[in-house]
């Protein structure tokens, strides 16, 4: 039974591998940019003022998709919270029975967490200039949160604070988008603020602002997901 099932799996994967091999063998890399990429390469600097073309695509050209993506993340965090809510440990019982984290981790976390949060903020504020942006910066913020949870397993962040950060930044994101639709070229157009000098921190219109909001929202969502996992009862 098990052998038969594994044979079927191997045969199916071999077929898929043959399909992949055809794709791989017949793949001819592009010599020049295709039409849409060419448009982005030629017009990003003039239209959005952002150095990082990927950030300009994500925040401005395909801003609506990013709003949808943030909504998907929000839904995920909400569903994880809902699914795990029934098995949430009673207050004070979380982290019970786990070995104490030790002096090294506690002191190290106290030193590192502020620096990690600062680095996360740096990454999302500079998203329009350097590789980075709201999602990456938000993930770094959440890594600070997980270090805090490791250093003190019984700790509870304030759910109210996290959900307030999340809803305020989400609301502000949509409001900026609507302002763009009224005053500038369309929903989430970044030209509601002056484009500034190309390559400076205060450039690219609303992109740094939107990326900071995305970073805060993503950081809050990841943190609430991690906290939902951490607060579950230990299945002993």
């Amino acid at each position: 039974m098990n052998l038969a099932r594994n044979t079927i799996v191997v045969v199916l994967l071999a077929l898929l591998g043959m399909a992949f091999y055809t794709l791989f063998a017949g793949y001819v890399p592009d010599e020049s940019l295709n039409i849409s990429a060419l448009y982005y390469a030629e017009n990003t600097a003039a239209e959005t003022g952002a150095q990082n073309v990927v950030a300009a695509i994500i925040v401005t050209y395909r801003g609506l998709d990013t709003l949808g993506e943030v909504t998907v993340l929000f839904l995920t965090a909400a569903i994880v919270g809902l699914v795990l809510a029934e098995s949430r440990a009673p207050k004070k019982a979380a982290g019970h029975g786990i070995l104490p984290p030790g002096e090294l981790l506690t002191t190290g976390a106290r030193l590192l967490v502020p620096m990690i949060l600062l680095f996360g903020a740096y990454v999302f504020i500079n998203g329009h200039l350097t590789p980075g942006g709201g999602f990456q910066g938000g993930a770094i913020l959440a890594s600070g949160a997980i270090l805090m949870l490791l250093a003190d397993p019984g700790k509870r962040f304030s759910h109210g604070l996290i959900s307030r950060i999340e809803s305020i930044s989400g609301l502000a994101y949509v409001v900026i988008g609507v302002i763009g639709a009224i005053w500038a070229g369309g929903f989430l157009d970044n030209a509601i603020l002056p484009l500034g000098t190309f390559g400076s921190l205060a450039s690219a219109g609303a992109i740094p602002l939107i990326y900071a909001l995305i970073g805060l929202k993503v950081g809050a969502e990841f943190s609430s997901m991690l906290q939902s996992f951490e607060e579950t009862e230990d299945a002993a």
């Binding site: 990429a37 600097a45 990082n52 073309v53 994500i58 590789p131």
Partner: peptide, 23 residues
């Protein structure tokens, strides 16, 4: 990489890779 810090915007079309798959 599609980041225009050392690449002048005018010659970006000849020097950067496709940014769409990265996004």
């Amino acid at each position: 990489a599609p980041i225009l810090d050392t690449i002048a915007p005018a010659e970006a079309a000849q020097r950067i890779i496709d940014p769409v798959p990265q996004a």
